[in-house]
Computed example of a mutant assay.
Amino acid sequence: MEDSLSRDLKAVGRPVQVIRSSSSPNPLLHIIRELRNLEIHLRSSQMSVSKTAAKYEDTEQTGIWRDIELNAWWIDPITESEFAELRNARNYNPSDITRMLDWFNDAQKVWGVDELVRQ
């Protein structure tokens, strides 16, 4: 999207500096962008599911919380060697890659990769 936005802005005569996800301090934006590149260019993951306990407030009875179980869909953990194959890997400090992947691989099993992408 970033590449097409830059091209489209130029085509309509508005060559504005495009804000890129890689400019953000939010690590989630970085890992989601690279996850897209990984899944499109290097591999195609099978989805697995695990259960996550959660609570939600009953909208019909304010103040009443219910215990529920959510399905957390996740992909195979991303390895540092897979990440290193990505073109953008050279833009990251190796210790940041380790921290980013550790966080993502753990968080997706709790919340689901779909929820991380949505966030």
Rank of each mutant, 00 (worst) to 15 (best):
G112V: 01
S45Y: 03
R99F: 12
E57N: 04
H30Y: 02
L101S: 05
D114M: 01
P77M: 03
S44Y: 08
D106V: 14
N91C: 04
S23C: 03
R99V: 08
W111Q: 10
I40N: 07
I75D: 03
G112I: 00
K55P: 04
P15H: 05
S4G: 00
N93M: 06
I75T: 14
M100T: 06
R90P: 06
L5E: 14
A11P: 01
N91D: 13
E85H: 12
S48L: 07
L5S: 09
E115P: 00
E2P: 00
V18S: 02
R43Q: 10
E85N: 12
A89I: 07
L70K: 08
E57A: 05
P94E: 08
S95V: 09
I40W: 00
V18E: 02
H41V: 09
L101R: 00
V110Q: 09
P94G: 10
D106L: 12
V16G: 01
N37S: 12
W73N: 13
E34P: 05
S23Y: 14
W65N: 09
Q61G: 00
V113L: 01
R118F: 09
S6G: 07
A107S: 13
F104Y: 15
S6K: 14
L116K: 01
W103N: 04
V117R: 05
I31L: 06
V110E: 13
K51V: 08
